[in-house]
Computed example of a mutant assay.
Amino acid sequence: MLWYQIVFLALIQGLTEFLPISSSAHLILPAQLLNWQDQGLAFDVAVHVGTLIAIVAYFRKDLVQIIAAWCVSIKRKESTSDSRLAWWICLATIPACVAGLLFDDFISTHLRSVEVIGYTTIGFGVLLWLSDRYGSSNKTEYDFCLKSVLSIGLAQALALIPGTSRSGITMTAARYLGFSRECAARFSFLLSIPLILAAGSMKLLELISSNISVDWISIGLGVALSAISAYFCIHLFLKWLNTIGFFPFFVYRLVLGSVLLLLVYV
């Protein structure tokens, strides 16, 4: 990879991983429009590590409280709001992990196409706007229950379909269930940590077993840029979300999906 390809793809990954606009849709565009080769397994690992660093760094204080409360709940059988949130995150992660194990090969073979990504980018963008437009905002993270957490977890499993957007579909489900925008976004971000960790670990093991030669300078640049861009993206998204809502992301997804479908049919 050339240096400007590394910079571009790392920034795109960092900026789109946590926004409700689908990172897979953006990573496929350079290959289609600029005839770039696939970035490769090592670079995928690098940007996963970068986005994981960003989300852990941003929510470091929350994570310390949540993990500490979770450990206490196991040891002393005491339940607090933070310990319950930790258990909800664990529970909501299970559907996506199970779906990944069962359907990853099928999705990789049949659904990783520009056409599928175009339709899902538009379709799930419409659902995002509708849930934000007509959903109530009276619930906070202290109002999670088994039903709502499982619903968000099942929605997250749909994000295995390229173009869906993991953050987008979990925020859509949370807004539909009546959670506030900020709560929906925060829970979506916290929910991403175990999945990014699992996906990055699997890719790392695959990389180690493949004996692929690694350009460590490119890897380091990918990690740094994806981490920095993701961190600032999370900060600005949470800062402006209540002001701008999800409508701009809905419009953006319509445009992006239309461009992808034009590449297929024109």
Score class of each variant (00 low, 15 high):
113 S>A: 01
115 E>W: 00
116 V>A: 02
119 Y>H: 14
120 T>Q: 00
122 I>K: 02
122 I>S: 11
123 G>W: 10
125 G>A: 04
126 V>H: 03
126 V>L: 14
128 L>H: 12
129 W>S: 10
129 W>K: 08
130 L>A: 11
131 S>L: 11
132 D>M: 10
132 D>P: 14
134 Y>D: 12
134 Y>M: 09
135 G>K: 11
137 S>R: 15
137 S>F: 11
138 N>R: 09
138 N>W: 07
139 K>E: 06
141 E>H: 10
143 D>L: 09
144 F>T: 04
145 C>V: 06
149 V>C: 07
149 V>L: 07
151 S>T: 15
152 I>L: 07
152 I>M: 10
153 G>N: 05
154 L>I: 15
155 A>D: 04
156 Q>A: 02
158 L>V: 05
159 A>L: 00
159 A>F: 01
160 L>Q: 03
161 I>M: 14
162 P>V: 06
162 P>I: 04
162 P>F: 00
166 R>V: 11
166 R>D: 13
167 S>P: 09
168 G>W: 02
169 I>S: 06
170 T>L: 06
170 T>K: 08
175 R>Y: 05
177 L>R: 02
180 S>W: 10
180 S>V: 09
181 R>C: 05
182 E>V: 11
182 E>I: 11
182 E>Q: 14
184 A>I: 01
185 A>R: 03
188 S>D: 00
189 F>Y: 13
191 L>M: 13
191 L>K: 02
192 S>W: 03
193 I>Y: 10
194 P>E: 08
194 P>V: 07
197 L>G: 05
197 L>D: 02
199 A>P: 08
200 G>P: 03
201 S>V: 07
203 K>Y: 09
204 L>W: 12
204 L>F: 15
205 L>T: 07
206 E>P: 07
206 E>S: 15
207 L>N: 08
207 L>H: 08
208 I>K: 09
209 S>R: 14
210 S>N: 14
213 S>C: 12
214 V>M: 07
214 V>Y: 06
215 D>T: 06
216 W>R: 00
217 I>G: 10
220 G>V: 04
222 G>P: 05
